[in-house]
Design a protein around this nucleic acid. Structure first.
Lengths: 275, 275
DNA sequence: TCAAAAGTGTTGAGATTACACCCATGA
DNA sequence: TCATGGGTGTAATCTCAACACTTTTGA
């Protein structure tokens, strides 16, 4: 690999005047002139945004910040920020934002790329392309505000989706996509354990599904279905009575990721609502 | 929305020296100093790459170009390129590349975002973040080379995946992800019709599944399963004998997108290979 | 008449749901 | 002893893959 510092100087960079040039629709093409051996491309600001979910007090909640700067000052927004350097890896940036916001141990969270949003006018200040990540975590401590954010807190997903106008930029769309992804991931993967602590009972795991999907599940069938998936969960051998009633076996997450037979077949008819 | 030209001048831009500064690992932070009201971020080159698939002569094939410039001159690569201007929409850029490469009518193709790849050293020249798209098309005419590409052609997916070293950059990973996405999308959506022409028979549609999945399906059960999905396909009323044997009804794609009951339940045991 | 492809009917194996029933604890 | 949640057993139902069988064409 070439030396970065040496390479950098061979790359024509945008000047203010070139950026102006780009912005004029009648000069879409030709605003960057590739010369013989050099290599040109418009340079754009890249952000990383996070849709962080957890289950808190029986509700499916998302981490949002209250914007402390314009535009959309005072609106709610997904936490996020720009790459800290041109060399920062995308996933690393997402992880950095996540630990900054939640203080969580990265080993406890599930983090996956959701999608990239890059409509030219999604940020009124400048062209910003944002790579969004989905994060599922066990309930963490109090989230910390910082950077552009005045305040960070957990908000029930249903309430935010019911009033999407509260969200800044195109974050309503991103949140919708993230919720859909999270819900469907529960069906085909073992990711639900990411919402639980290190050890959990069957009913605690079932609660996760019930809360995220907003419907009740048969505790007995659920129990068998989870145990039928090889290495979905591993018994610790210990028991707990923290939920009352008969002592329940404690489990730890297993190594399995894909669930062959979905935990619940999609059927949106006779499902009773939970809460 | 603010006037772009006016905004541009208020944004601190990278100079060559600032970019150099970013490249030095010991100065990761602090290389951009945010001042009071202004707003800073590292600027990065954004590319759009395409994994274009079709079914050609009974094979599942992908469109690849032979690179005409360094690095990886002579290697195969996914077609793609940089945004043509800082204001170009990501999806529009993908569509532009697609029509440039295949000459297809955009109405005929299925185009969806796959993922974004941004490992800092994935391109040895400079930091490049590439937003990749998955495209599924009916068999088009001869693909056209152009830009960085010496030559563009369709290559059987199996053969390329068997020798991933032929691919430039991280395109082997991208292709793997794209193939996986394409295969699983067939199971839960009606996207397979995107591989067929405007009108097709049941066995032609079934062939798509067989070729992409690399396994044979029971023609009779397939037939019923497709018709069981509301508005998966619509009969045109016409028939054809182009495949020999008894005349087959012709269908057009319907409006349905999601298939509630997967076309084939995942079971990778007793499946016979096709071809 | 035969081969080949299209399309319908049926059946047995297996999966799934709904729920009866028993277990173990705390209050 | 009772309420509460944990966990097992089972029967009716549903689904699906497998395949026998009929239909309609071209050669």
């Amino acid at each position: 690999m070439l030396d970065r510092t040496a390479v950098a100087v061979t790359i024509p960079l945008l000047s203010v005047s070139v950026l102006r040039c780009y912005s004029q629709a009648d000069q879409k093409r030709g605003s960057v002139v590739p010369n013989d051996k050099q290599w040109t491309a418009p340079l754009i600001a890249i952000a990383v945004d996070l849709a962080v979910f957890t289950v808190l007090a029986g509700r499916f909640v998302v981490l949002l910040v209250e914007r402390g700067i314009e535009p959309d000052l005072g609106s709610l927004a997904l936490p996020g920020g720009f790459l800290s350097t041109v060399d920062e890896d995308l996933t690393r940036a997402a992880m950095r934002e996540l630990t900054e916001e939640t203080g969580l141990d990265p080993g406890q969270v599930h983090l996956e790329q959701l999608a990239t949003y890059g409509t030219p006018d999604r940020d009124p200040r400048q062209r910003v392309v944002t790579v969004c990540y989905l994060a599922l975590t066990p309930t963490p401590g109090t989230p910390a505000a910082g950077g552009d954010a005045r305040h960070a807190d957990w908000y029930p997903v249903e309430e935010i989706l019911a009033e999407p106008g509260q969200l800044a930029f195109d974050h309503a769309q991103i949140l919708t996509d993230a919720v859909e992804r999270a819900r469907s991931k529960l069906e085909y993967t073992t990711v639900a354990t990411s919402f639980c602590g290190a050890e959990f009972t069957m009913s605690e795991l079932r609660r996760v599904y019930e809360i995220v999907w907003g419907r009740s599940l048969d505790a007995r069938n659920f129990h068998r279905k989870v145990l039928a998936v090889p290495d979905f969960v591993r018994p610790t051998g210990a028991q707990t009575t923290r939920n009352g009633g008969r002592p329940a076996a404690l489990y730890r997450p297993g190594e399995a990721w894909l669930v062959q037979i979905p935990i619940l077949r999609a059927r949106h008819e006779g499902a009773r609502d939970v809460h």
